[in-house]
Design a protein around this nucleic acid. Sequence first.
DNA 1: TGTATATATCGTAAAAATACGATAAAAGGA
DNA 2: TCCTTTTATCGTATTTTTACGATATATACA
Lengths: 109, 109
Amino acid sequence: MTKSTLQTIPEACCTLDISGAEQDKLVAMFKAVGNPIRFEIMKFLVTHPGCITGDLVDHLPIAQATVSQHLKVLRQAGLIEGTVEGTATSYCLHEQNIAWFRRKVIEIF
Amino acid sequence: MTKSTLQTIPEACCTLDISGAEQDKLVAMFKAVGNPIRFEIMKFLVTHPGCITGDLVDHLPIAQATVSQHLKVLRQAGLIEGTVEGTATSYCLHEQNIAWFRRKVIEIF
DNA sequence: TGTATATATCGTAAAAATACGATAAAAGGA
DNA sequence: TCCTTTTATCGTATTTTTACGATATATACA
């Protein structure tokens, strides 16, 4: 008797309205924030909106180049926004995308 | 003139009540779900609660050993629970931890 | 007791992430 | 214009993650 004859996959009890590019975007956000340093950056931006890269470099135990790299990951995930101000760059959470993120988490989990 | 003399770190506009082991746990959850295969597993468990490992192996484009490894990551992050039933293992979301996860996301973001 | 089934774990190769120093780029001030 | 400041990017070493086949483990069944 083959496996497929007996196997009972539980019925889908519901549907989940996420897939494709939207799902990829959400997973990228989870991945971005699923790193201790990047989570710490997000925390710092919640409590210090508009701070510049140097503030984060001071706050974190890693080199400037690495902070910059992490900021890039968060930017590309759409979680934060950088604004060039003179020689500095000011960072904030990307409120609109964060709101979307929160909605999706609530929707799915 | 030194940097510290002029630098103006923006005031903390608020506090964020997460740190230490709790923060580590949350980051681990984000990391676990921040992988396309593992997110797909979570989705499948939402729609097919109580399914067994083999169901996931059938549903995913990767080897059984790899699925098992991903399930372990999700288990260790506290996102899912496995129940041994005969030779099979039935998986479900860990509802209590998922609820905590959702609360924390809402609280922070 | 032997065999089949289901899953977890082991060992390992390949790919990706993380970190750093060095350097480029871009703006401001002397 | 030259120097300083700030940040991003490049090149690269190291670590971690991801994937696989092979194998161990544990239950069920004949």
